[in-house]
Design a protein around this nucleic acid. Structure first.
Lengths: 130, 130
DNA sequence: CGTCTCATGTCACAAGATATGACATGAGAC
DNA sequence: GTCTCATGTCATATCTTGTGACATGAGACG
């Protein structure tokens, strides 16, 4: 359980998070304005994300893919905050092709930072400013 | 063992690595010129480190604290490369105060990125350009 | 169909971060 | 003393990030 402490350490800049989540900076910032994440800021006002933030972003991404909108996702987290227990599993549906990619990617974090993982995957995206 | 794959994913910019290792950018770059690490580069020529790189940097830091110089540390890794097995444990000495800080810090990575960890620690450094 | 809203993309300018090369320095080795 | 080693500090050029503004495709709704 102390592991949770480490995962909350905010050290990742938005660029790294983009790679880890394959979300655009615009999306990440937007989710923040929507109150879904609240990354820390350094002295230079740069966002500093933790692995927990990255996890949440991946969750958000998954919810969006499943058709939820910001407001609904917000409610999910509000409820979780109250009930103080991770039960968003109740929202799961039979896996689609998209989901698989999601899960595999999520595994990276499970391995590179958590404890509930199983098999890895490499998005290997390049994010070149196309 | 597949977990090793994830840890080799180069996504961390030097700033993050500085925080994770409490090493200066100058030191990190110097160790690179000495051939101790070979971080990947992105399209913009920026260094991209993996958790494995961070681990090695922490090891290097530990060796330096123990009195080794670049050349000797280099040999350590060359030998490891040949014998293809992590046995630099043979170089350990009875723990000193400095060592403790090292180990505790190393634990962060063990937790936020590996699997052989135990208890955490927060350097909580700020890196403001003093 | 128009019109709104939502989630994102794209631009643009300011400010912080990083790359490299040069010069400086304290601690030891000789 | 003089060298070497590991780092610090500067300077300049080039990315990266932050914010705000304008644009747009997909749906919802009338």
């Amino acid at each position: 359980m102390e592991k949770q402490l480490q995962r909350s350490r905010a050290v990742l800049p938005i660029g790294t998070v983009m790679k880890l989540t394959t979300l655009s900076a615009r999306q990440i910032r937007y989710y923040e304005t929507q109150g879904l994440i609240k990354p820390a800021r350094n002295e230079g006002n740069r966002r500093q994300f933790s692995l927990i933030d990255v996890d949440r972003l991946l969750d958000i991404k998954g919810y969006l893919d499943e058709g939820f909108n910001m407001t609904e996702i917000k409610r999910v987290y509000e409820k979780q905050a109250k009930h103080q227990q991770k039960e968003h599993k109740a929202l799961e549906k039979p896996v689609t092709d998209e989901d698989v990619r999601q899960v595999l990617q999520h595994e990276f974090l499970s391995i590179a930072g958590l404890n509930h993982g199983s098999e890895p995957s490499f998005p290997s995206d390049d994010l070149s400013k196309k």
